[in-house]
Design a binder for these strands. Structure first.
Lengths: 151, 151
DNA sequence: TTACCTGCAAAGTATTTGCGCGTTC
DNA sequence: GAACGCGCAAATACTTTGCAGGTAA
């Protein structure tokens, strides 16, 4: 994400924080900025390491607390992963995921890249349907190269 | 799943085990049977509790080890969940999930219930596409009743 | 009989919590 | 100045591991 877009997101975060009476702290800004700048879907530990250079005194617990706050504000989302580690995503637009079954790499894909998708029924098994996302499994370019002999 | 289908699955498991030189133990059969009988997607603890009546001496560690073995045999799959707990699924057919955003309840849905879905491109962002699954978010009947005032 | 598997207990990893001090508003 | 949030360390929750005895083939 480019710098001006990030600033825009950060001030949106500030606005929401003020609205709810939450403090705008360096730590929360740093966590959110780190997540916005990353095209990946890092876990708490990775975010912590990324921030640590600029804020050597920040603690991992604070990163978890900041992520919690950002989730409550609705500016980030949680991403489930098969390895049992929580990953986070600053992209809150509806989108889909492309995941490598070999190395676990996870990329966002927009609806437009998937082509036209049908609208779902508004009710399924008694559930009121809100939205849906598609998880595409595949093999990433790197793993295709590495795994030519074993596939 | 009905009893005859379960027996069929269990003997398939026995066949695969023999093929790979793995022992067919009561504990593994019990774990697999529990998972087959459950329409839900239980976690290790839940499976353990379900088995415990019949096998009071089984340990939770054994349940984890049995689940590992079943995963390796490919007769069950892991299901990611937002709460950071691994859940398991004896349904290895390609299928989709319907999840309640309020209570986390998770149901399987077959492709036929979603209606016609378009074929995806065979390559996306350099990935070789293998397959995909759809996660539908919604509100389950129980939560619709409970949450009428708050929604 | 022999190799594999179980059950126990202890360790490991990811995440959460309590609390006194520091920071934001 | 008061409320809120941070950092530390300890606690918790889920899962994995090592090993001695037991079980399947």
């Amino acid at each position: 994400m480019d710098a001006s877009r990030i600033d825009q997101k950060l001030s949106e975060f500030a606005r929401l924080s003020r609205e709810r009476g939450l403090s705008i702290t360096h730590q929360r800004l740093a966590v959110y900025r780190e997540l916005l700048a990353s095209g990946e879907h890092p876990d708490a530990e990775t975010i912590y390491r990324g921030i640590h250079e600029k804020y050597p005194t920040i603690s991992l617990a604070t990163v978890y607390k900041a992520l919690d706050t950002l989730l409550e504000l609705g500016v980030i989302t949680m991403v489930k992963s098969t390895d049992g580690i929580m990953r986070f995503d600053a992209n809150t637009e509806p989108h889909h995921h492309l995941v490598c079954v070999r190395c676990g790499k996870l990329l966002d894909i927009g609806s437009e890249e998937l082509g036209p998708l049908p609208a779902l029924r508004s009710r399924l098994k008694g559930f009121k349907v809100l939205n849906y996302s598609i998880e595409v499994e595949g093999i990433c370019p790197e793993c295709q190269v590495k795994g030519q002999s074993t596939s």
